[in-house]
């Protein structure tokens, strides 16, 4: 199963509920992906959840991995679709 880490920005003034967006993604990928701590070396992908378009979270620690960035609530649905599509390929 695909292992995914979650990286949040710090959330100083988020334009959407970042935690709710992650819950939506987890639900949308239930049975298709396993969500692991960010520092889990076995993860292949990181979803970076940015509270606004500035997308200021530092991604240095995730450099080696495939990264999907979401910066609005619609990004959650797009991330689910993208991950599902990749899994089919």
């Amino acid at each position: 199963m695909l292992k995914i880490g979650i990286k949040f920005c710090g959330g100083c003034n988020p334009a959407f509920d970042r935690v709710a967006a992650v819950e939506k993604i987890k639900k949308g990928l239930e049975g298709k992906a396993e969500f692991v701590p960010l520092n889990d070396e076995t993860s292949e992908m990181v979803i970076a959840v940015m509270g606004c378009g500035n997308a200021c979270a530092e991604l240095g620690e995730t450099r080696e991995k495939q990264i999907i960035i979401i910066s609005d609530i619609d990004g959650a649905d797009a991330a689910i679709e993208e991950i599902k599509r990749k899994q089919k390929v």
Partner: peptide, 8 residues
């Protein structure tokens, strides 16, 4: 908390 640690 993961959702704040990038700033904190």
């Amino acid at each position: 908390m993961p959702e704040y640690e990038d700033l904190m």
